[in-house]
Design a protein around this nucleic acid. Sequence first.
DNA 1: GTTGAAAATGAATGATCGTTCATTTATTTT
DNA 2: AAAATAAATGAACGATCATTCATTTTCAAC
Lengths: 209, 209
Amino acid sequence: MQVEAEQPARRKGDETARRVRAAALKLFARHGYAAVSVRQIATDVGVQPGALYNHFPTKQDILKDLMLAHMADLLAAWDRDATSRSPNEDPLDAFVRFHIRYHLERADEVFVAYMELRNLEPVNFAEVEAARQQYEKILSDILEDGVRAGRYSVADPKVATRAIIAMLTGIPTWYRPGRGLSRQDIETLYLTMVRKCVAPETSKPMGAG
Amino acid sequence: MQVEAEQPARRKGDETARRVRAAALKLFARHGYAAVSVRQIATDVGVQPGALYNHFPTKQDILKDLMLAHMADLLAAWDRDATSRSPNEDPLDAFVRFHIRYHLERADEVFVAYMELRNLEPVNFAEVEAARQQYEKILSDILEDGVRAGRYSVADPKVATRAIIAMLTGIPTWYRPGRGLSRQDIETLYLTMVRKCVAPETSKPMGAG
DNA sequence: GTTGAAAATGAATGATCGTTCATTTATTTT
DNA sequence: AAAATAAATGAACGATCATTCATTTTCAAC
């Protein structure tokens, strides 16, 4: 998975704006939007607080910028993934692998995009929410197609979508690469669970309700 | 599921403390700990800001109190559930049902306990984290026992535990009772998915990796 | 009903918040 | 190199932050 190759800044301000975004992302992810002051961001960038306002109108705009960029990148990365993929590959497998890889690679972005939703002003929230629903639709379409084709069996594809996404998105909250399982291990484990979760019901029912 | 029956306040201050907790819980859940001021809590309670300090030493202590109480209540509720249960009932079924019901009933507590972890001072965090691990262990023990008995098949019970809990805990983020699915529907849908997820592998493998 | 303790008030503390702005410095364009 | 523009400074703005405290009010025990 190729993360956007940032092209070299043409003006000096572009570079500063980039560092502001990076600092804000790190700080928001660690302490939360409301708990991070503009002064902290400025200090991290190595600049006076007022300088930030040459690049972002308000603190809220920094958050908005981060979250909208994340959602756009996520959807763009999926599109790129889809075009580069073998048409034989099972789409559910592809989605699970993509989601895990992307979310492990961009843990801070994902975390902020989820945790700071309530700190977005309504109009910004609506935009992020629309992108989120677009992303969810990718998986529910996959599930619905698969159900129609008899490859999967789920009682409610919308619910299954949310269940699967919640399951996968939880990974970065506990997984730390380098100790214990490899990313490959994680992919395999989760892929197995997701597959079973939506598998056509051929096995006998279990236990006494 | 019986939520703690609060016994009547003996002193007036107990009642005020209760209302402070209730107001803080509601506000923290809606706006986040860092974004809520002591003044807002006091206003919600109908009292001057200084009055809160008759009941809690600091704002942080309110958060600590809420989170520790939630974790203790959760573990206590599971114990109560376990004693009142038929020994024939499948423990995984019981856990899933319990978890869903509890998390839908106490959505604010659950949300705060998850979202505000990073705003806890280290010593308070450690205590909450210990309780969380205790709760996780309930499920991983169930899975490990079931795997040994051949009732379930999971490659890594610890990972499966996190996957299942993430899946279930995600429900309150989107489910709103009253419109669409009933709580009973939710229980059934998720129970089916979880069961399949850990089912012994009797079905044929799917798709081309 | 009196008394002592508990609870709430109202005002203040110093610190920090996001943001503004006149000015200076750095960079880009001509 | 000069002119024009962009970027950063440093200091300040009023607002709000969590918390403190002397005082007053309310309540519970006798």
